[in-house]
Simulated assay, not measured.
Amino acid sequence: MPQRGPGPEFLKLVLSKLDCSEPSRVIRHDMGLDRFLTLVGLSRGILLALEGATGASYPGVIFREVHDANGPTRLTFRAYWREANRNPSLPFFLDLLRERYPDLSVDPGAA
Results as ranks from 00 to 15, higher is better:
Leu42Ser: 06
Ser43Leu: 08
Gly41Trp: 02
Tyr58Gln: 06
Asp19Met: 03
Leu39Asn: 05
Gly60Trp: 00
Glu51Gln: 14
Leu75Trp: 03
Cys20Glu: 04
Leu50Tyr: 04
Leu33His: 08
Gly41Ser: 09
Ser43Thr: 11
Ala69Leu: 10
Asp30Cys: 12
Arg35Tyr: 13
Arg74Gly: 00
Asn70Leu: 12
Arg28His: 14
Asp34Tyr: 12
Met31Phe: 13
Ser43Pro: 05
Leu33Tyr: 06
Gly60Glu: 01
Leu42Pro: 00
Ser57Asp: 04
Leu18Glu: 08
Ile27Val: 15
Leu37Asp: 00
Asn70Ser: 15
Gly55Tyr: 01
Leu50Ser: 12
Val66Lys: 04
Leu18Cys: 05
Gly45Tyr: 04
Arg74Val: 11
Arg25His: 14
Ile46Met: 10
Arg74Asp: 05
Met31Ala: 11
Pro72Lys: 03
Ser24Val: 14
Ser57Thr: 11
Leu75Asp: 00
Ser43Phe: 09
Phe36His: 14
Val40Tyr: 01
Arg25Pro: 06
Pro23Thr: 00
Gly41Ile: 05
Asp30Phe: 09
Glu65Arg: 09
Ile62Glu: 14
Asp68Pro: 05
Thr54Asp: 09
Arg35Leu: 14
Gly45Arg: 02
Tyr58His: 11
Ala69Phe: 06
Glu51Pro: 04
Leu18Gln: 07
Met31Lys: 12
Asp34Val: 13
Arg44Cys: 06
Ala53Val: 10
Asp68Tyr: 09
Leu48Ala: 02
Cys20Pro: 02
Arg28Tyr: 10
Ile27Arg: 15
Leu18Lys: 02
Asn70Ala: 13
Ser43Cys: 11
Val26Gln: 05
Arg64Gly: 08
Asp68Ile: 10
Leu39Lys: 04
Asp68Leu: 12
His67Thr: 10
Arg25Trp: 12
Arg64Trp: 15
Pro72Met: 09
Leu75Met: 04
Gly45Ala: 06
Ile27Pro: 03
Val61Lys: 00
Val40Phe: 00
Ile46Thr: 08
Ala53Gln: 07
Gly60Tyr: 01
Gly71Pro: 11
Asp30Gly: 10
Leu33Phe: 09
Leu37Glu: 01
Thr73Leu: 15
Ala53His: 06
Arg28Asp: 07
Leu37Gln: 04
Ala56Pro: 04
Leu37Trp: 07
Ser21Asp: 12
Cys20Tyr: 01
Val26Thr: 11
Ala56Ile: 10
Gly32Ala: 11
Arg35Phe: 11
Leu42Lys: 12
Ile62Gly: 06
Ala56Gly: 10
Gly55Val: 02
Gly60Phe: 01
Phe63Ala: 05
Asp19Phe: 01
Leu48Met: 06
Leu50Met: 13
Leu47Thr: 01
Pro72Asn: 05
Gly32Asp: 14
Ser57His: 08
Cys20Asp: 03
Thr38Pro: 04
Ala53Lys: 09
Ala69Pro: 00
His67Ile: 08
Phe63Asn: 04
Thr38Val: 10
Asp30Glu: 15
Cys20Gly: 04
Pro72Arg: 05
Thr73Phe: 12
Leu18Trp: 15
Arg64Asp: 13
Pro72Tyr: 07
Val66Trp: 11
Ala69Ile: 07
Ser21Thr: 13
Arg28Lys: 15
Gly55Gln: 02
Pro59His: 02
Leu47Glu: 03
Leu39Thr: 01
Leu37Arg: 07
Glu22Pro: 06
Gly60Lys: 02
